[in-house]
Every structure is written in C-alpha cells, then in structure tokens.
Design a protein around this nucleic acid. Structure first.
Length: 419
DNA sequence: TCTGGGGTCCTAGGACCC
DNA sequence: TCTGGGGTCCTAGGACCC
C-alpha cells in the first residue's frame, strides 16, 4: 500500500509577502497578476470578503477601499526563491519528495513506521520555523485522496492543519463532504456534466460505473475515480521530468497597433525564453509566436499563432529572435488593437544530447555575446538589452503599480526566524 | 480606462502510406 | 447506387492543473 502526503502552502504568494512585511499579518491582502489585472492570491481575510480567484481589480475597488485591503503587485522572483526554500526543508525531512507546483510538494511516506500524524505535524512546524511559510498537510493512499485530505485539513480548525486519511473510518465522510468540483482533475466542464447527471459529491463519483466514466471523461477521468477509491494510479516520481515547452507572454499596459512595438515585445520575450532554456541546458528546434486582441472588448478579434522551424536545435538568442520575428511578420495584420503577445519554445531537448547538424553549425563567436547578454539581463532585469531593437519605444509595457521592494536581492543574507 | 501567465496530457481528424 | 482497411504521424484544440 502506498502512502502519500501533500504539503501545500497556505495562500502562498500572500504568505511570502507577509514574511517580509509583517504589517500584512491579520489584514486582508491580495497579490495581483503581472499586469495588475486581477487578484491571483488572497489571504483568508480577503477570501472572507468575497474576493474571488482571478477576479479583476476594477471590480473590487470599493471593497478594497472600504476594508483597507493591502494590494501588492506579484513579485515572482521572491516567490520562486521562497518556494526553493520550502522544497529544500521538505527534502531534508522526508524520505522522498516530488515538487508538484510552486507551492505544493508530494512526499512518499510508503512504509514509514513513525506515526503519520506526528510526522505531518513535524513537517508543518519545520517549514514554518525555517521559512516563515504556513502549510497544510494531507495524508492518504493516493495523491487524489491526499489532495482532499489537504483541503479539509486547511478548512477545519479541528485538524490543526494536518489530516491523515490512511485506513481512516472518516474516508467516506471526507468524500461525502467534498463537492465534486473540488476533486483534483474535475474542472468546470466535467462538473457541469456530472451535476447534470446527479453526481454532486466525490463519494457520488466513486459510485459511478467505470464504463460510463471512461465514455464521458476519458482515461484521465477514470484514473481520477480509481484514485478516489484508494487505488494508486498516478504513482510517484521523485526525478523531475525535463520541461518540453517554455513560454513567455504578457498582456500589454495598453493596446498597440504597429508592428514595431510588437517586434520589440516579442524580441524581449524571446530573449527571456532563450536565457531560460540556456540556464536549463536545453535547446529548442521550433518556436511559436502569437499575438492577440483583447477578448473582453467588442473590437474585431484576431489571435493568430505561427510556428517556425529553427535551422537547427539551438538556445542561441540571435537565431530564436530571428525566427520569432519572421513568424510575427507573417501573422501581423494592420488595423487590429493588440493587447497581448507571446513566444513559445517547443521540442526542448537536452543540449548535450542533440547531435549538431554538420552543415548548420552555430557560430562559436555567438557564445561570448550570449554570455554577456545573460549577465546584463540578470543584473538589470529581463529585457534590459535586446537584439536589434534597443531604443525603440516601449509602447507595450505591462503595468505594475503596486510593486513591493525587491527583497530578493538582499534577503538571502537575512536569517528568517519565526517563533 | 481596467480582465494573468505557464504548464501537461489526451483526443479527434487530416495527410499520407501500403 | 456502389467505391478497402489498416497503420502512423502530426497538429489543433480542449480538458485539466497551479
């Protein structure tokens, strides 16, 4: 029998901000998406005010004023650093870990002889002490059940933030209390379909015949149902799989119409993306570029995407930028008000693993140039310098009015000690 | 005025092959 | 009117996740 724990950081981005700004403690706080568009993290107090996940800021301006909600622009550098810290603590105390997202980690506790609840409590305390981040812990025989245990652990004060469902007589109760839309793997569409068929809770879902589930929800849905019944279908993978694609995209602070602005934007995105895959020692063999109008406006809509093969697998900024601009020029049409653009690097593969074509060798002189690029962009922020477009107007810049100080540059030297 | 960004996996359908 | 039957590979789009 397998035993998994899911450790999930509470309101992660808000908790990160609170570590460095204790004034936020006890007050409603929200973190905004990168264009200051909507709330992507909410403290418990903010949730109680009725602020929804991904709710646009302009819809809650009154609420924010009335309740003095603290508003912060997202600082993903900080969250990424804090995430690494949390993951390191867990790796130090658990037999085996698998990071699932920036704020979640599965632990494999199969065969553990220690008391599972005690272990869970210890993990919670250590993470809080060493990073300042509060977490919830759910323990069960499968990942999908551990997710449910985690949700209940966070909601119910009785649990103290840690719930173990392994061999528990409460398991059916837990499934009955869990709405089907809260099950990991059940999104909006499946919820609609299931509710239409009278399936309202996780327990209802486990009682449906396999054949019906397979037909209506495919193999993925069937896996979810089996996991809910206690059968481990997803398994555990402690070795992180290399990324297959990477994407950099942004909504613009205001709409742009001319090609030069778009070239400038996608050049910055391509430069950032190329740097990212160089760091991971990956190469890409094809890129996609896309632009799009504002889907919420009544203006004519246009959101094309163009893929371009690279001459050889590469992580060289020059080649990637060149390909991206070529793709952009093919899809650009005058007369539309563009609100967003992005770049994807596809078919990523290990750089050492890829045989170089005999005739299309990259120019070794490029490497020095790229290194210099990386260094400047590291020091001055992504997009500080670019290929060919420096000095052009940045008509597409994102908004970021509520940015908190950049703790990340200094914080590593500050010991974090919380009682 | 104002609505995030970055991923994965599966499936359906078309192109192409024998 | 009737006009094979499989394979494979690729891509677009849809579902989900955080």
């Amino acid at each position: 029998m397998t035993v998994y724990a899911l450790v999930d950081c509470n309101n992660f981005y808000v908790s990160c901000e609170r570590v460095f700004n204790p004034k936020f403690e006890g007050h409603p706080v929200i973190v905004l998406s990168s264009n200051d568009g909507c709330a992507i993290a909410r403290s418990n107090e903010a949730k109680e005010l009725g602020i929804k996940m991904a709710q646009p800021l302009y819809q809650i301006t009154d609420l924010v004023k009335r309740h003095n909600v603290q508003v912060v622009s997202a600082n993903f550098h900080l969250y990424s650093d804090m995430s690494n810290r949390v993951m390191q603590v867990l790796a130090d105390i658990a037999p085996s870990t698998q990071q699932y997202s920036i704020d979640e980690c599965f632990l494999d506790l199969t065969g553990m002889t220690a008391d599972l609840i005690e272990f869970g409590r210890m993990a919670k305390i250590k993470v809080q002490q060493w990073t300042g981040i509060p977490v919830g812990v759910g323990i069960a025989e499968t990942k999908t059940l551990a997710k449910i245990a985690n949700i209940i652990a966070k909601k119910s004060t009785k649990t103290g933030g840690v719930l173990n469902l392994v061999g528990s007589p409460w398991r059916n109760k837990a499934l009955e209390r869990t709405k089907v839309e809260d099950v990991w793997g059940i999104g909006k569409q499946f919820t609609k379909m299931l509710n239409r068929n009278g399936v309202m809770t996780a327990l209802d879902l486990t009682n449906q015949p396999d054949g019906w589930i397979r037909k209506e929800m495919g193999v993925v849905g069937l896996k979810t149902v089996r996991e809910l019944r206690g059968e481990d279908c997803i398994g555990f993978d402690s070795i992180p799989q290399p990324k297959k694609t990477t994407m950099v995209s942004r909504s613009f602070g205001h709409t742009v119409t001319n090609l030069d602005d778009l070239i400038n934007a996608v050049t910055v995105f391509a430069t950032t993306a190329a740097e990212e895959i160089r760091k991971a020692n990956l190469v890409s063999s094809s890129v996609s570029v896309f632009i799009g109008t504002n889907p919420f406006s009544n203006e004519p809509q246009y959101k094309p995407l163009q893929s371009v093969e690279l001459p050889f697998a590469t992580n060289n900024t020059k080649h990637i930028v060149r390909a991206v601009i070529r793709g952009l020029k093919e899809i650009y049409r005058e007369g539309f008000k563009y609100k967003k653009a992005g770049v994807m690097l596809l078919d990523l593969d290990d750089a050492d693993h890829v045989a170089q074509s005999l005739f299309d060798r990259p120019d070794p002189k490029d490497d020095k140039l790229i290194e210099a690029f990386d260094q400047i962009n590291r020091q001055q922020g992504p997009g500080a310098i670019n290929f060919g477009t420096t000095g052009q107007p940045y008509g597409w810049r994102s908004n970021s009015a509520y940015r908190s100080p950049r703790y990340t540059t200094e914080w590593k030297s500050i010991p974090v000690v919380k009682a």
